[in-house]
Amino acid sequence: CHSECLGNCSQPDDPTKCVACRNFYLDGRCVETCPPPYYHFQDWRCVNFSFCQDLHHKCKNSRRQGCHQYVIHNNKCIPECPSGYTMNSSNLLCTPCLGPCPKVCHLLEGEKTIDSVTSAQELRGCTVINGSLIINIRGGNNLAAELEANLGLIEEISGYLKIRRSYALVSLSFFRKLRLIRGETLEIGNYSFYALDNQNLRQLWDWSKHNLTITQGKLFFHYNPKLCLSEIHKMEEVSGTKGRQERNDIALKTNGDQASCENELLKFSYIRTSFDKILLRWEPYWPPDFRDLLGFMLFYKEAPYQNVTEFDGQDACGSNSWTVVDIDPPLRSNDPKSQNHPGWLMRGLKPWTQYAIFVKTLVTFSDERRTYGAKSDIIYVQTDATNPSVPLDPISVSNSSSQIILKWKPPSDPNGNITHYLVFWERQAEDSELFELDYCLKGLKLPSRTWSPPFESEDSQKHNQSEYEDSAGECCSCPKTDSQILKELEESSFRKTFEDYLHNVVFVPRKT
Rank of each mutant, 00 (worst) to 15 (best):
E246K: 15
N263A: 07
W352I: 15
S402W: 11
S319W: 01
S171R: 08
G217N: 02
F268T: 03
E262M: 11
A149Q: 12
L252D: 09
K350F: 03
K267F: 04
V104W: 11
T118P: 07
G110W: 06
T273K: 09
W207A: 07
G139T: 04
W322P: 01
I129M: 06
W344I: 12
L123K: 00
L212V: 10
F299G: 08
E156R: 03
I214N: 06
T241L: 11
I357N: 00
M297I: 11
D367V: 06
I134M: 08
N248R: 09
Q339M: 07
N150T: 09
N399V: 09
D249R: 07
N141A: 08
T254Y: 08
G189S: 05
L219Q: 02
N255L: 12
L392R: 12
R179Q: 10
K337L: 06
L252S: 11
L229D: 09
V128W: 15
E246N: 15
F365V: 04
P391Q: 01
I232T: 13
P287V: 14
Y305F: 12
D115S: 12
F174W: 08
T127Y: 05
G373P: 04
K301V: 03
W352R: 04
L151P: 00
E155S: 05
H222A: 09
P287A: 04
E236I: 04
D326P: 03
H233S: 09
V390S: 09
S400C: 08
D115I: 06
I327A: 07
L227I: 09
I378P: 03
N142S: 12
Q199L: 12
L349N: 00
E231Q: 15
K242M: 10
E283I: 09
C126E: 01
S173H: 12
I357A: 06
E122C: 12
G125Q: 13
Q382L: 04
T383P: 00
A259Y: 02
I250H: 15
Y305T: 12
G125P: 01
F275Y: 11
M297S: 09
N263H: 04
W322V: 09
N141M: 09
H233P: 07
Q216E: 07
L169G: 04
N334M: 04
N130K: 05
Y372K: 12
S239M: 11
S158R: 05
E187V: 06
L298N: 00
T213M: 11
E283M: 08
A259Q: 13
L266F: 07
D206G: 09
K209M: 09
G240S: 15
W207R: 04
V363R: 08
S269T: 13
I188M: 14
I395P: 01
S239L: 12
H233R: 13
F358W: 02
L133S: 00
A316M: 03
G313N: 13
R176L: 05
V170K: 06
A149M: 12
I250A: 15
A168P: 14
N263R: 08
S166T: 11
D312N: 08
R176K: 11
W352Q: 14
D289F: 03
H233G: 01
I357F: 15
H341A: 11
D206C: 09
R247M: 07
D384R: 13
Q403C: 06
A374E: 03
L392C: 07
T113I: 05
V397M: 12
D335K: 08
K360V: 06
N248M: 09
E264G: 08
G140M: 01
K234P: 04
D312H: 06
W207P: 06
T213W: 08
P288I: 06
V128C: 06
V359R: 01
I278H: 00
I114R: 00
E155H: 14
D384F: 01
R244T: 10
Y194N: 13
T127Q: 06
W282T: 06
L196S: 13
I278S: 01
N200W: 10
N190L: 07
A251K: 08
T386G: 04
W205V: 05
Q121V: 08
A168T: 15
E122Y: 12
T371W: 09
S166H: 02
A356N: 00
K162Y: 07
L298T: 04
Q314F: 15
K103Q: 04
R370V: 10
Q403F: 04
P304E: 14
W344F: 11
L107D: 07
T241H: 08
S166G: 07
K112A: 11
G373T: 10
T213L: 12
R176S: 08
T364N: 15
L331K: 12
Y223P: 00
K103V: 06
H341I: 05
F296V: 05
L227D: 00
E231R: 06
K301F: 04
E155R: 13
Y300T: 13
G159H: 02
Q339H: 11
Q339K: 03
V324M: 09
K350W: 15
A259P: 11
M346C: 07
L133A: 04
D377M: 12
I379P: 00
L180F: 12
G152V: 06
L331Q: 07
Q121G: 02
T383Q: 00
F365P: 11
L349I: 06
L266G: 02
K112Y: 14
S260I: 04
K242Y: 04
H210P: 02
I181R: 00
S208N: 05
K209F: 11
L279H: 14
D257C: 10
G256T: 03
P225V: 11
S398T: 15
I405N: 06
T213G: 09
F299L: 11
G140I: 08
M346I: 12
P394K: 07
F290A: 03
V363L: 12
I154R: 00
F358Y: 03
A251T: 13
T254K: 13
S338E: 08
W344M: 02
G343E: 02
R165V: 07
I404L: 02
T118Q: 01
R182H: 08
T118H: 14
G110P: 02
S338Q: 11
G313F: 10
Q199I: 08
T113N: 09
S401M: 06
N307P: 07
K301C: 01
P287L: 07
W352G: 02
L392K: 15
G131H: 01
T118W: 13
E302Q: 13
K409M: 01
D289P: 09
L151Y: 01
I154Q: 00
S338I: 03
L123N: 00
N136I: 03
D377H: 04
P304R: 13
L180E: 13
F193P: 00
Y305M: 14
F311E: 01
K112Q: 06
G256F: 08
G189N: 05
E109V: 15
S239V: 08
R164M: 13
L196G: 09
K407G: 04
K177M: 03
G217E: 01
F193V: 10
I188D: 15
K337P: 13
T118F: 13
V359M: 03
L266Q: 03
S239N: 06
D249S: 06
F268A: 03
N307S: 14
R176Y: 05
P330L: 13
N340H: 12
G295H: 07
N263T: 08
L298I: 05
F220K: 11
N198R: 00
N211I: 11
E246S: 08
C228M: 03
E156F: 08
W322K: 00
Q258L: 11
P394S: 15
Q354H: 11
S333C: 09
I378T: 09
T127I: 10
E184L: 09
T273V: 15
Y380T: 08
L362Y: 14
S389P: 03
S171A: 09
I154S: 01
G159P: 00
H341G: 07
P411W: 01
Y285P: 08
N150P: 10
G256W: 04
D377R: 09
L252H: 08
S119T: 05
G139A: 06
N130Y: 03
V381S: 04
S132G: 13
L161T: 02
R247D: 07
V359P: 00
R332N: 14
T371D: 04
K103A: 10
L265S: 12
N399W: 11
F268P: 03
P411L: 01
H106W: 13
R124P: 02
N307H: 15
L186W: 05
Q354M: 01
K112H: 15
N150I: 14
A149I: 06
L201W: 03
G295Q: 15
G131E: 01
T386F: 15
G131L: 00
S132T: 10
L180G: 07
A149W: 14
I214L: 08
F365H: 01
K253A: 12
L169K: 01
L107H: 15
I379M: 12
S173P: 03
L298P: 00
G243Q: 15
E148I: 14
